[in-house]
Design a protein around this nucleic acid. Structure first.
Lengths: 208, 208, 208, 208
DNA sequence: CATGAATGAGTCTTCATTCAT
DNA sequence: CATGAATGAAGACTCATTCAT
């Protein structure tokens, strides 16, 4: 599973470049990020960059892909039926904490994800869009499942999913810009407080 | 109220250029929008553009400023104390409808507003940021007022405001990308459904 | 000899434009002088300018021509043989005083004349060059005449003429840039002091 | 004393560009000189130019700086008191010969120096002005020293210095434009002939 | 593998000139 | 005659990408 040292060194180099690029992209935006700035930050020569990445957009894509992989690993279907699984609220909270944690831990990445909406790199933009669409679809399915079992109040799942995803993004954006952000636990608490109340059936929120 | 014809023609020209630019910006992003594309779309000569705008960033600024002006006119403090004013929920709904309506009416503009987060036009980016910060502050104040009179449940107003604003943006983004979006009334209905439930004190939502 | 009032008005307009242009040219150089600056200073509309002058270089040419005309009128052959004429030194002094006076009186014009060596207006540059060549030729002829009658010491007239003309230009340049220039009389005195001494035959300067 | 080959090549490139630029500037003036023309003459690509010089004005400045350095090295204080130094006239002649030689050797440079009076590159224009002002100051000091020891006749040093510097420039200008210029030795001879006579005290020129 | 000098397509912007009103 | 809106050629400069060493 491990490669020979040469292979390892190559991967290390790649990571180094990606890290440098991530910061530059975050600070200057896609267009504002010049290859110059990236190679300076990565302490490599111009040609070396093109040895590891085909183009500027290729690094951008790689960064996005990696992040999306990490996020996907943290966001999963919430198991409602499985009695051996923790209760849905707990699952939700755990996933949200893990997700927000990951993003907020890496400010540069967070900036990228939040602000890279409209890059001229159509590919990357579309992929980012796809990622959010995927997450939204996940939420839609969760809502629909909840609807069926009466957990979720009657609503238009697509719209509500968009609203929920938006609220998460809104909060993350706040954290990214904040000087000293509140602890993630608290943030997620509020997020869940608002979301669940906004979504759950009244019979659940105020039972009896 | 109207000026002399020459003045009118000039304003008309300005509008024409701004309209063309708005579409190009929406399609290609700030950087991807070339003066070339703008003047082609506006059917004017290169020099003419610079007769009406100092620079590329100047048009961008103008477009943003105009839009933000329109939006500010639609988003105001919600009067709670004034007995002659409509009930707060109605005010909220009316403002939301007016706002979402305005944005969704103009898809290009909406795209701009939603995606112009990180332009190299620092000035515009900052102003847009300020605009959203202003709106968020408005929501924060509303929440705080609600908290005082027990209308709003105990919460961290800054975070909740960010979540609410985010949910509105999330929904608008959905509408912008949607093939055939649902009627604004319905959208706003869901938005309010989620937001109020998420925010109001339980004693209000489920009065005994 | 006088024209109808309309004609007069036209000429007046021309003069007005030339005056404005002269100042702008002096301040900004040929290239730096924009039609914009000229018409603003002349308080006329863009089109009006082109009613009176074919092009930017045309005004420049006119200004130069006029000045060169005035200068030519002040610089003439020095009569040596004519007994009814004032002595040569007096003629020289008078011409120099008149010339320097005229130039220094009009700082803008002086700046133009001194610094317009290499304008992209090839025509004007060449004409200015011709003017100076003419003056130099005049000096050469004066020197040759002086040589013949033993007034001037043996020398290479072309070179000496160039040196003399250069010294006049050097002094004028100094005056143009000076805060409070010395009186022209004094300036010309020094100029003649240097030039004559440098040129006259020793038998004349220090007669036994 | 020599650097590694890469460094040498870079300096060579720089020189090559400066040489090309010098000719273009001389032929077309500062404004008329387009980057296009420069790179065509230097046989390099557009980007290469900007690899070696920040801007058009930067090359111009470099050319001027280099020339001024060379000239300053040739123009020095004339030692009057030091008995081991050659007599002042000889020093003067040597310096003048070296200076005029250097300028006339490089026609393009000479044209630049003589005609670049009024560039829109304020920096360069000012620097050139400063250079001539420096030289003039040098002459003024020499004259004042001469005055004190009775070598120079009573005169207004500033004016006379301007005249002397002007005469040198006048002569150089002649040489630059001349088809087949006379030998520098002769030129300098005349220059000194005129200048010294014009400046020295009568008791020196015609002793006894 | 690494380097960095060279490339040139593409951008924004200026400004002299024209012409319909 | 006067106006000033419109024009578009031309110019300086940037920067992603290539390739010989």
């Amino acid at each position: 599973m491990t490669q020979d040292p040469a292979e390892r060194a190559k991967l290390e180099r790649r990571r180094q470049i990606m890290k440098a690029a991530k910061h530059v992209f975050a600070e200057a935006g896609y267009h504002g990020a010049s290859i110059n700035a990236i190679i300076e930050r990565a302490q490599i020569a111009r040609g070396t960059f093109y040895l590891y990445f085909e183009s500027k957009s290729a690094v951008f894509d790689s960064i996005l892909d990696q992040a999306m992989g990490e996020l996907r690993a943290r966001i999963q279907r919430i198991e409602v039926d499985d009695p051996s699984a923790p209760p849905p609220q707990v699952q939700l909270r755990e996933q949200l904490v893990a997700t927000v944690d990951y993003i907020v831990e890496d400010r540069a990445l967070a900036t990228l994800l939040m602000k890279a909406g409209h890059t001229p790199d159509a590919d990357a933009a579309q992929r980012l869009g796809q990622f959010f669409a995927d997450v939204r679809a996940l939420i839609v399915r969760a809502l629909e499942a909840g609807l069926e079992i009466g957990l979720v109040r009657k609503c238009h799942p697509d719209l509500v999913a968009a609203a929920l995803l938006g609220s998460v993004r809104g909060v993350i954006e706040l954290l990214v810009d904040a000087e000293d952000p509140p602890p993630v636990e608290e943030v997620v608490g509020e997020l869940i407080g608002v979301s669940l109340r906004g979504v759950l059936a009244d019979s659940i929120t105020r039972p009896r």
